[in-house]
Write a protein that binds this DNA or RNA. Structure first.
Lengths: 185, 185
DNA sequence: AAAATGACCAAAAACCCATATCGGTCAATC
DNA sequence: GATTGACCGATATGGGTTTTTGGTCATTTT
């Protein structure tokens, strides 16, 4: 019974955070959706932040899995990197929670949510870094160390996909591939 | 006399916009600092926006001059590009008007100021583009067309200088040079 | 008559403050 | 021992009132 309740709370919170964002989600409404009393939430989570963290951790785990699934054993390094970046951006653009947090940061500019988003970026960068390091362990040489390379590649990729398209027609896939490739080796 | 007055208004406005930002400068205070009546401002400029535009145009002209001054006839393309980028970033970081507009956009998030800032970015990109095109006209080959190359280089440079340093120790100059270089050829 | 002024106006912003809502607690209940 | 929901202090909200602002224009100054 206990586990079932905790799960219901998490699901209710996930729905609400995704639909209304962090600030506009109230503990009372989460409790109502989860069909528990407000106090019950606090037997599983000490605060709204903690509850949110649980949801975010799950989401990031899903993101890592999506990224992982894009990798192919037999593919070349730069192909895998690009497939992974594509998966990450696709995930970011299709998961309501991250979309909503982005909107919330832009509209309300709350320091709290802004910090959460930098945390998300940090987690993504760490994942990219780990993929690079796995590849390096296999003996593949890179131009820069994994931290810098992850940063450089991720930022460039986002710039080319999201920012460029705000004012231009999308770039051909080969162009993007070529740019990413030239940063690795 | 007329010219003198117009100049006084521009100077007063420049000071005020730089010190207090767009929203917080009032036409009344500009008039007071310039020692003219409020109505007089409107014989030279039709609106606060127009007045501001004049100031911004001057600032951008100064920026272009600073960037221009960093170029050296005998230097290699990538050296000039980097010198120019350095000059632009340095200008951005040291000119009160642009700093203040950045703060204003972050704090108040006014659509008006945000639009001004994208306009500034556009002007900077156009300038970089023109420098690239001058070089291309001399017969130097580049990996990408000038629009994409300007975008790529500028974004990467900002990422490496400003954003990287938010969480890491500054990168050695040679590393930055190398990265920029590899994007050009 | 051309240039300059500042009182004036509608519109927008800032200010107040009573009221509602929120995250979190804990004595009572199951 | 688990669960509840009335309750609390702190913060957010709504909206009526006042102040400030960009812009105008009849009047004055040059």
């Amino acid at each position: 019974m206990i586990i079932d309740k905790k799960e219901r709370i998490i699901e209710a919170a996930a729905t609400s955070f995704s639909q209304f964002g962090f600030k506009a989600t109230t503990m009372a409404s989460v409790a109502k959706i989860a069909r528990v009393a407000k106090g019950t939430i606090y037997t599983f989570f000490d605060s709204k932040e903690t509850l949110f963290s649980t949801i975010l951790d799950r989401t990031m785990k899903n993101l890592r899995q999506s990224a992982e699934a894009a990798l192919q054993e037999e593919a070349a390094f730069h192909e895998n990197i690009q497939a992974m970046l594509g998966a990450i951006l696709n995930f970011r653009e299709n998961h309501q929670l991250l979309i909503k947090l982005g909107q919330e940061a832009k509209e309300l500019g709350t320091a709290e949510v802004l910090e959460i988003l930098t945390q998300v970026e940090r987690m993504i960068l760490d994942y990219i870094k780990s993929v690079i390091e796995t590849e390096q362990a296999k003996g593949i040489s890179t131009k820069h160390d994994s931290e810098l390379l992850a940063f450089l590649i991720y930022r460039t990729y986002i710039a080319l996909i999201s920012d460029w398209e705000r004012q231009h027609t999308p770039l051909p896939k080969e162009t993007i591939t070529e740019i990413i490739k030239s940063q690795i080796h």
